[in-house]
Structure formats: C-alpha cells, structure tokens
Amino acid sequence: MARTPIGVTRRGARPARRLVGLLILGVVLAGCATSTYQYNWNIVVDSVFRPTPLILTGVWLTLSISVVSQLIGVLLGVVGAVGKISRLAPVRWAASTYVWFFRGTPLLVQITFIFFGLGVTGVYRWPDLEILGLIVPGRVQAGIVALGFNEGAYMTEIVRAGILSIDPGQMEAAKSLGMTYSRAMRRIVLPQAARVIVPPLGNEFNNMLKTTSLLVAIGVPELYVTFSRMNSSGPTVFHPFELFIAAAIWYLLLTSVWGLIQARIERRLARGTGTSADAGPGLRDRLFGARFGSPGSGLR
C-alpha cells in the first residue's frame, strides 16, 4: 500500500491540531483562574512522586488483578475458541453459551453477583486464601474471577478470529506429518494465530487495566478506590480535581508501560514474516493513536 506522502499530511494536520490544543488549554486555565477553588497542586505531585503506601497498594492491586485476570481471560479464550470450532456439537454449544452469557450481561452485574450473590447464598463465601505466601482477600479473588471470565468471553472471539485467519493448509500439512489435531493446534496453528491475536489482546489488556476500577462495587482498594477514599476523608479530603488528575496519571503510566511491552512482543512475533523492520506503529502512534499524519502509520 502506498504511503501518504509525509510532508503533505504534516503540513495539513499539524498546525490545526496545535491550535485546538492551545484553545483547550486556554479554556481550562481561564476556568482555573476564575474559580474560587483552592488548588493544591502538591497533592498531584506527591501522589505521583511520593506515593503513600495506600496508593502503592492501589497500584499493585490494579496491576496484579489486571495481569491475573487477563491471563485467565487468555486461557479461557483459547479454550473457548477451540471449543467453538470443535467438531463436537455439545462442546460448541457449551462454548457459545459461555460467550453469550458473559458478553450479554454487564460486567458490573457479574462482579456484584459473583461476590455478593454467591456469598450471601453460601454457594461460595469467598474466604481469604493464602496463595504462594500472599494473603489474597476474598473480594480480590471474586474480582479476578469476574474480570477473568468476562475477559475470556471476549478473548474467545479474538482467538477464534486468529485461528480462522490461518490457512487451512497449515493444519493439513501438520496432519500429513502425523500430528494429531491438538498437537497441530498447539505447535503450528496457535503460534501463528498469536501474531494476529496480540494487537487486539493489547487493546483488551489496556482496557483491563482501567476496567479494574469497577471493582469499587465490591470494595477492592485498587487505584481508583484509593483516590476516591482520599477524596472523602483524610488530609486530602475534597480535592477531587487534583486527586483524580493524579489517578489519571497513574493509569496513564500503567497503560503506557504496557504499550511499550506490547510493541516488543509484536516485534518478536513478526519473525519470519519478512517485515521485521516494519513491524508496526512506532511509540508515538502507539501512545497517541495513528489517526494523524504521523510517519509510520502507513495504512490510510
């Protein structure tokens, strides 16, 4: 595909973008200047550069819950995808029902149902567990289960699309060499599908980092809950402006680091495609999106 000549788009889009940016900044500053609100910018600086143990706990919870939930999601996604393309009708049916249910109901309902609903009936009361020397509170477990199962439903469709994108000749070649279906799937098809799966998977994990904030509903003290609590009591009470800017910065930090990691993974997976030099958008496109006339976003 031919690239848009860099010079043309740059000259066209850039000054306009700057102008809009300046305008927004101006409005915000003007708003700040005219309000009677007592700004305490130290709250933002301290929260980011000298975080309290509470904030660090929040970051840790957000990160660890996201990673574990996403891992569960990917695992369920692979199982679900293989199930959905199975030759056996009951397996296909089970996988479809799973996806149908978790994509068809709000995550918030799933979270509260799994924690409160199962808890109150005694189906499972979510006791705290010690896992690998760490005491994991019941509500964190419930949150991970809800997020993981919800994510698995979306990952099922992503993984399925990845598998279907692989030439059937690959499975046939593997079978002709004496591999069973499952071995061919694991060794030949899924590794190739991974290349197709990783970009949307990156999106999913980016979402996951932020969606953990829904765990406010069951009182998991992750990042959002921490800042929310700092706003309702303690020395920083009623400073929502600074506190939620600080929260946003923390989320941006997490998602940005993930963006870098994802780029590395994609470069690794590009092996053998003959496109390693041009394996995807650069850092700037990755962080800010590729909509504007930046070089490296060749698909327009």
Partner: peptide, 17 residues
Amino acid sequence: RAEIGMVFQRFNLFPHL
C-alpha cells in the same frame, strides 16, 4: 499418516519456523 509423506501445491511450509 506419519508413514505417508505429502507435498502440496502451495508448499504449506510453517511460516513461523
């Protein structure tokens, strides 16, 4: 099948290897 080799029109090599 392990005892029967097959060579395909479109090669079907494994591109990730």
